[in-house]
């Protein structure tokens, strides 16, 4: 029998980002990262902010930054509904830095709790993306 693969789908509200077959995928669940191999027990989880790593031929072939969302795993597929999905290699450091400054300013100017929560989210997202982008720069 041919080698089994996981049918992985990454979907953002705007579009279907990825749909392909992989050996393994590691997803940042809200209660810890989890790896999905073929014939994984079916389950549904919420996600925290983090990186989705796709494994092909024994190593990471692609990684995407996701800003929270949901994952659904069944025996043969893994579907990630991400609020935002950006390839780690395409994070624009300058843009993120700008966003971080803006978000921090918004956080200070926020009047309502709602605005505050939204700005807080943006700060956290930008900070995480910046860390990733720095790590990438360090590797290169």
């Amino acid at each position: 029998m041919a080698e089994e693969l996981v049918h992985f789908e990454l979907v953002s509200p705007e579009k279907l980002v990825i749909s392909r077959k992989l050996e393994m995928v590691v997803v940042p669940g809200s209660e810890g990262d989890f790896g999905v191999l073929p014939r994984h027990a079916p389950f549904i989880s919420t996600l925290r902010m983090g990186v989705v790593n796709m494994y092909e031929a024994g190593k990471v072939s692609d990684s995407y930054f996701v800003a929270g969302g949901f994952a659904e795993v069944t025996e043969e597929r893994c579907t990630v509904l991400a609020e935002r999905a950006v390839p780690v290699t395409e994070i624009d450091q300058a843009a993120v830095e700008k966003e971080l400054i803006e978000a921090k300013a918004d956080l200070e100017n926020a009047d309502t709790d709602q605005e505050k929560a939204k700005a807080q989210d943006r700060v956290a997202t930008a900070e995480m993306m910046l860390t990733l982008s720095n790590a990438k720069a360090g590797h290169a």
């Binding site: 809200s30 209660e31 919420t46």
Partner: peptide, 25 residues
């Protein structure tokens, strides 16, 4: 199939996160 699903953190937890999301969608 449904009977076999596991939920993390919990059904209620996911549902309360998923429903507002669904509204936006």
């Amino acid at each position: 199939l449904k009977a076999m699903y596991d939920f993390e953190p919990s059904e209620e937890g996911i549902l309360s996160a998923l429903l507002p999301r669904n509204l936006s969608v």
